[in-house]
Amino acid sequence: MNNSILIIEDESSIRKFIKINLERNGFNVFEAGSGEEGINIARKEKLDIVVLDIMLPGIDGFQVCKILREEFPRLGIIMLTAKTQDIDKIMGLEYGTDDYMTKPFNPTELVLRVKSLGRRMESIGNIDVNSILSSAPFKVDIYSRKFYKDDKEIELTPTEYAIAKIFIENPGRAFKRDEILNQVWGYDFIGDSKIVDVNIRRLRAKIEDDPSEPIFIQTVWGIGYRWKDKS
Rank of each mutant, 00 (worst) to 15 (best):
T108R: 13
E208L: 00
R204I: 03
I166D: 08
K152G: 05
T159Q: 12
K149Q: 11
G191S: 09
V184H: 13
P171W: 15
T219N: 07
D197F: 02
R177S: 10
R201I: 00
P137M: 10
V184W: 01
V198G: 05
E208D: 09
T97I: 13
P171S: 15
F167K: 13
R120D: 01
G186C: 08
L112E: 15
L156H: 12
V198Q: 01
A174E: 14
E94V: 10
P214L: 00
F167V: 11
P214N: 12
L156E: 08
P211H: 14
N106C: 02
A205H: 07
D151E: 15
G186D: 02
P137H: 07
E160I: 08
G125E: 04
L117H: 01
T219S: 06
T219G: 03
Y148N: 12
D188S: 15
N182Y: 01
G92S: 12
V196P: 05
R201M: 01
M101N: 08
K103I: 03
I127T: 10
P107I: 02
T159V: 08
G92V: 04
I163R: 12
K194G: 07
K194I: 06
R145Y: 00
I154A: 14
V198A: 03
S123D: 09
I200H: 10
G172C: 10
R173W: 01
S135R: 02
S116F: 00
S123R: 15
V220A: 08
Q218K: 13
N130Y: 00
P171L: 14
D188P: 03
R120W: 01
D128P: 05
Y187I: 09
W221M: 02
K149I: 07
A164G: 13
E122A: 05
S144K: 10
E94G: 03
A162D: 15
R113C: 10
I195P: 07
I207W: 07
I132G: 01
M91D: 13
Y143V: 02
S135Y: 05
F105T: 07
K176D: 06
D99Q: 13
M91P: 10
V198L: 12
I217Y: 10
K165N: 05
M101K: 15
A162W: 05
P104W: 14
K146E: 08
Y187L: 10
L133C: 03
F105K: 00
Y161W: 11
